[in-house]
Amino acid sequence: MQRKLPLILVLALIPQCSWAHLVSTRFGEFYAGMLHPVLALNHLLPWLALALLAGLQPVESARRNLLLFPLAVATGTVLGCLFPESSLISQVNLLAFFSLGLLVTLALRLHQSLFTAVALVFGVIEGYGNGTLDVFGTGFLLYVAGVTVAAYIVMTITSAAANWISGHQQWGSIAVRALGSWIMAAGILYSGFLILPALQS
């Protein structure tokens, strides 16, 4: 059983890919791209965790992240739209969900290059998870632009808010860490919900 565990974990994560469908084409591809990660909690919560983490880092890291994370997400989304078969990579999402929450809870100050690396890898994976097969031509560009803009908006506003509140209020950094622990708890429960049934069989 011990040796099988990693494999089971990986397998348990596969079904997630099927979610990456368009929310609605009613608003056009741009907004479909923008709403896709924001309406799905399994994307939004890890994004928020990364943004909170960025807010707890020195401001240089957070600032650099504003540019790099959306770029990474854009790259990932393009990959996700082009090569949806090798979907295994996108499932590291679940691990990121939990571990980003943990990092926020611990309020770890990472070395700038380490934080950037985490953000880039996570961005590509997340973008990949948001890829879709339902867009073509101009729609494809608009969709990728939408996901990227969503990444930029969520990252910018949340990390700035976290940075400001932890710098200006005594209780600020504690509030951010508490939010981090909530996200971590959600990550634990969600991972359990997806993985436990498979382990028990």
């Binding site: 622990s181 708890a185 634990i188 429960l189």
Partner: peptide, 11 residues
């Protein structure tokens, strides 16, 4: 801060 994490384990 610790409560949600432990609660999640119970969950």
């Amino acid at each position: 801060i610790t409560f949600p994490a432990v609660m999640a384990v119970g969950g």
